[in-house]
Simulated assay, not measured.
Amino acid sequence: MSTFDFIKSAQRTISMEVAAVTAMAQRIDSSFSQACEIILACQGRTVVTGIGKSGHIAKKIAASLASTGTPAFFVHPAEASHGDLGMITSNDVVIALSNSGSSSEMVALLPTLTRVGAKIISLCGKADSPLAQAANVNLDIWIESEACPLDLAPTSSTTASLVMGDALTVALLEARGFSAEDFAFRHPGGTLGRKLLLRVSDVMHAGDQVPKIHRAASLGETLSMMTAKGFGMTAVMDDSDKLVGIFTDGDLRRCVDKGINIGSAIVGDVMTPNPRTVQSRMLAAQALNLMETNKITALIVEDENQKAVGVLHMHDLLRAGLV
């Protein structure tokens, strides 16, 4: 069996990368504010580019920006030199990642980017490099050494680039007042999107599907209504068709336990008054929380005039993927 200490190696790598990021955080200065202001003022798109491992980080930064209110996309620098530079206009901002700041593919883009008039923000570890010198703003991602024991494989440097990209993303979303609902609109296919976009009205049963009975109806009529609609409950209404109570399977069991005559009893006398309800515009996730907290399987949906306009069942939320 190997005697190599994998745990010690992992701890050393993590410690070195943490140290690199901590040191970088202490060097954040007005250049960072200037970079954010350039992106906020951008009338076009934010184009993120990088080669090799920096390219992979650049793709992630572009995706993070795009999903948080800053229109952005990734361009491969090699492809840019073969036509993709046509995607970049004078209205755009280019975020260029290169630890050395002198990779040939990145340096080859600088004359054209300058001629086009696009603003350049570099994430570079060497302030005297061609990339940093050509940029409108350079964000310092210098590291003392890579976590790789050979000091060759990009490790601490790519972590520093990723963290700087995240810092830009978060600062920009905060400055834009980007909300959870804004985030959901950009993630409609995910669980978060469903939780923040789906309303009770989107999943409730409405119209003829809603079980309603007048408060003067007999329990026999009430049970027939409950059986026909299949929700294990019915809304109880007054003469103005306003919701005054609810009658459920649980209420029926309590009637039996008390020896109440099912054939002659009036539902208004044995209903549960002032039931919990939800509004149709409420987020379905909020309704789910209410149902789980109070161990309720079905809720009446009412409008602002206390009219029963729908029924929300736990099964509806299951089908919607909220549970």
Rank of each mutant, 00 (worst) to 15 (best):
R176V: 10
P71F: 05
D249M: 13
G50L: 01
A265M: 04
S156F: 07
M1V: 13
L85S: 05
I141F: 08
P77C: 06
L152K: 07
F231T: 04
D257V: 00
G232W: 02
M16L: 15
V47N: 04
A320H: 03
A23H: 02
S201T: 12
S15N: 09
H76K: 01
L318Y: 14
I266K: 08
T277Q: 08
T297P: 00
V116T: 14
A58Y: 03
L150D: 12
H205I: 03
M106E: 00
F74R: 12
A72F: 03
S90G: 14
G263N: 12
L123T: 01
A96R: 05
A78L: 12
A135S: 15
D84F: 08
T248Y: 05
A265I: 08
H315D: 12
L110T: 05
R45N: 13
E105K: 03
F183N: 11
A80V: 05
T272I: 14
A127K: 09
C36K: 01
L312H: 11
A41P: 01
L322S: 15
K307F: 12
A216C: 04
G321L: 10
Q306V: 14
D128V: 02
M225W: 00
A41C: 02
G321S: 13
P71I: 09
E146N: 11
T293H: 10
D202M: 10
V309K: 02
L97I: 15
G83V: 10
I14K: 12
E302I: 15
C255K: 02
V244E: 06
G259K: 14
F185P: 01
H214R: 13
D84K: 08
L288W: 10
I143D: 09
D151I: 15
D269S: 14
A10R: 12
L318I: 15
A58N: 09
A58M: 06
C148H: 06
S30P: 03
V116E: 02
F183M: 11
T22G: 09
D151Q: 14
L197P: 11
V301N: 03
T3M: 08
S15C: 04
E181F: 01
Q133F: 00
T22F: 06
D140W: 09
L283P: 07
A66T: 07
L312W: 13
L288V: 05
L131G: 03
R319F: 10
D182K: 08
I213N: 07
M282E: 10
L162T: 14
G177N: 05
P111S: 02
S15K: 14
G263F: 13
D166R: 09
E17M: 03
K195G: 00
G117H: 02
N294T: 09
M237T: 09
T46C: 15
S98V: 09
R215I: 00
A171E: 00
L172D: 07
T68H: 06
T70W: 05
N136Q: 06
V93E: 01
M225E: 11
K258A: 14
S81D: 04
L317W: 10
A10G: 10
L40G: 04
S161W: 03
G165H: 01
